[in-house]
């Protein structure tokens, strides 16, 4: 056993985190909504809600459908647009006691470059995640993550406009996520977020109509965890850049599955909707797991269950 507490600090592609727990984009606002319930200094950081070039009112209601072991959502990237966001919102993030990752979504390649540059230029923003995998916008939201050429060009566009750590969020709705991951790595990404929601839908049999206003949605929660763990496993064998694992993480043991598959850090999204204290119990549980195994740092167990990952490092 080690004498001191194991370290949870980790380095996600140049983004230094005091804990390996990020709060998933779109699930945590900007952090202030959850500040009454937990000490934000005890989470690694917040990935902000995605911002686009122009304001978006978002999809019509209903936007949420609880389903077996998960949640279907179709918010539709509601956001005030980058001009208003920079003028009215970003300054408020300065006092957050954790990392702040800006999230950029777009409908054209140049959106990823332009919005990334303007957002990343702000001192309040520690890193950028580009959301090339939103399943809930009418056209082209997810296309970027499902086409290697578009994924490459969106990544290059953002990479060219910032030196801050660049995370690219991949979609699970592809045949071969490893091949997309390789292309995005080569295009200059510093880390990969694996994965966004799984496309799904639910139908109201009484009304004989789709339940979501947007008809289709993205499935999150425990239902997609095995899908996400496999995606991390496969991506970890394909690239050398670090992975932010996400998809249905609710407990420390869930988080450890992702770490052992090859994730350097993890993201909690829907898990916060069960209990906002989840990120703290997850971090405490990971620390106890490391202590029980005599590990000094979480970095010692990244990919420990994935020989293909270890062979590449």
């Amino acid at each position: 056993m080690v004498d001191t507490q194991p370290s949870l600090a980790t380095n996600l592609g140049g983004l230094l985190l005091s804990a390996p727990t990020l709060m998933g984009s779109g699930c945590y606002g900007s952090g202030e909504e959850y500040a009454p319930f937990i000490d934000l200094a005890r989470i690694g950081g917040v990935v902000l809600k995605s911002v686009t070039r122009l304001p978006r009112l978002g999809n019509d209601a209903p936007r949420l459908v609880p389903v077996a072991s998960g949640l279907l959502n179709a918010i539709g990237l509601q956001n005030p647009g980058i001009d208003s966001y920079l003028a009215n919102d970003v300054a408020k993030f300065a006092d957050r006691p954790c990392a702040i990752v800006g999230s950029v979504a777009g409908f054209a390649i140049e959106d990823f470059g332009d919005v990334t540059e303007r957002l990343a230029a702000r001192a309040e923003i520690d890193a950028i995640e580009i959301n090339i995998s939103c399943p809930n916008v009418a056209h082209e939201g997810e296309t970027f993550a499902c086409d290697p050429k578009l994924a490459e060009r969106a990544t290059q566009a953002a990479r060219a406009r910032t030196k801050k750590p660049l995370i690219v969020k991949l979609s699970p709705n592809v045949t071969d996520i490893a091949s997309i991951a390789r292309v995005v790595e080569a295009a200059g990404a510093d880390a990969l977020a694996v994965v966004n929601t799984v496309r799904g839908m639910s139908i109201d049999v009484d009304r004989q109509a789709p339940k979501l206003g947007n008809v289709t949605g993205g499935l999150s929660g425990a239902a997609i965890r095995p899908i996400a763990v496999l995606a991390v496993w496969e991506v970890a064998r394909a690239v050398r850049i670090p992975i932010l694992g996400q998809g249905g993480i609710e407990t420390a043991r869930d988080a450890l599955e992702f770490v052992l598959a090859g994730a350097t850090a993890i993201s909690v999204g829907t898990g916060n909707f069960t209990d906002p204290r989840a990120p703290i119990t997850i971090a405490d549980g990971i620390r106890a797991y490391l202590a029980a195994r005599g590990c000094a740092s979480i970095e010692e167990i990244v990919g420990a269950a994935n020989p293909g990952y270890l062979a590449r490092r």
Binding site: C27, Y28, G29, P36, F37, R63, L64, N73, T270
Partner: peptide
């Protein structure tokens, strides 16, 4: 989902 204004659902 969240009940606290974070998710816009």
């Amino acid at each position: 989902a969240c009940g606290v204004g974070a998710c816009w659902g």
